[in-house]
């Protein structure tokens, strides 16, 4: 009899299952699908941030800078644990008026470049509290698809694929102006360095002359002293014990010094060989490309750099 009860049980459970699926089929408006680019999940309204501004009462996501309020103090750049903020500032000339911030602070530095590399940002929110003008803030934009700055014709797909599109330049200074400022600063620095070198050379010359004069004087004094010793030797023949004691003291001191020196020489080169050599090789592979990518923010594909770095690492390991 279990044969027939088995069949009826199977038919009954199959019909029960079909009822369930049909129950969902006739209500197609009740779905769990989120049509992502068209519909987005609501942003949580609870307070996650640590600051006192309203802008903090959201999720921590894309950084934004109100560049009109920035005084170029580089507090955020110093606070960033991953070095994703890169700021270039130039001192304003005596005639330039850079305006004042919304707090009333007079701007003394021209922020020529304010780059945030969001591909390296870890959303720790440590850069916002040090800002004296409260001009760098976290926004709730987690999608990174707004075309508000840098590149206006970038589609979301391109921004997801290309890491360079996540490097944001906030400064309003134009690229040519930035280059001009850079060249100007470089020439000024070079002139200063040359001036300093001239000064230094003069100082060195003066010091040399002084040293030569001192040497001559010293030699004279030494000669005079030797003569004096030679004269006094004959006089102090009897007090030999005293001089032998002082000689012994000086000998022990020199031995101690030499011991210290050898121990230091043994330890430090060993540590250098362990740590420094692989680091140097990696940094030498990275550095030639990295500055151009960050400062010029051109479409430099930096994958070969990564590749080189990884290969050097592998070869070191091997």
């Amino acid at each position: 009899m279990s044969y027939f009860s088995n069949i009826t049980n199977a038919v009954g459970t199959l019909i029960a299952g079909m009822k369930v699926t049909m129950g969902y089929f006739v209500r197609p408006r009740e779905h769990v699908t989120l049509q992502y680019p068209d519909e987005v999940w609501p942003i949580p309204t609870r307070n996650i941030g640590v600051g006192e501004l309203d802008a903090y009462n959201t999720i921590r996501s894309k950084l934004t800078v109100n560049i009109d309020d920035c005084i170029g103090c580089k507090a955020c750049e110093r606070a960033c644990p991953v070095n994703c903020i890169h700021i270039d500032t130039y001192k304003a000339g005596p005639d330039d008026d850079l305006g004042i911030t919304s707090n009333g602070t007079k701007k003394k530095l021209l922020t020529a470049s304010f780059i945030i590399d969001m591909s390296e940002c870890m959303f720790c929110d440590l850069c916002t509290p040090p800002c004296p003008e409260k001009c760098i803030t976290m926004t709730p934009d987690y999608q990174f698809i707004s075309n508000d700055n840098l590149k206006t014709d970038v589609t979301p797909e391109q921004r997801w694929r290309d890491k360079n599109l996540l490097i944001y330049q906030f400064s309003k200074v134009s690229e040519t102006e930035r280059q001009r400022l850079k060249v100007e600063a470089e020439t000024a620095a070079r002139a200063k360095a040359e001036m300093m070198a001239v000064k230094k050379a003069a100082a060195a010359k003066a010091a040399e002359e002084k040293a030569a004069a001192a040497k001559v004087a010293e030699e004279k004094a030494a000669r005079a002293a030797a003569e004096a010793v030679a004269v006094s030797k004959t006089i102090q023949e009897n007090t030999k014990n005293n001089t032998s004691e002082t000689l012994a003291e000086t000998n022990t001191e020199t031995v101690l010094v030499s011991e210290h020196g050898t121990s230091a020489e043994e330890t430090t080169p060993a540590t250098d060989t362990v740590t420094d050599i692989p680091l140097e090789s990696i940094s030498s592979a990275v550095t030639p490309e990295a500055p151009s990518e960050l400062t010029a923010d051109t479409e430099v594909v930096e994958s070969p750099v990564d590749h080189e770095a990884s290969t050097t690492k592998e070869s070191d390991n091997g």
């Binding site: 699926t21 049909m22 969902y24 089929f25 197609p28 009740e30 779905h31 699908t33 049509q35």
Partner: peptide, 11 residues
């Protein structure tokens, strides 16, 4: 299949 699984299917 989408409607039976409380989904939307191709859209």
């Amino acid at each position: 299949s989408a409607f039976m699984q409380v989904r939307l299917g191709p859209m």
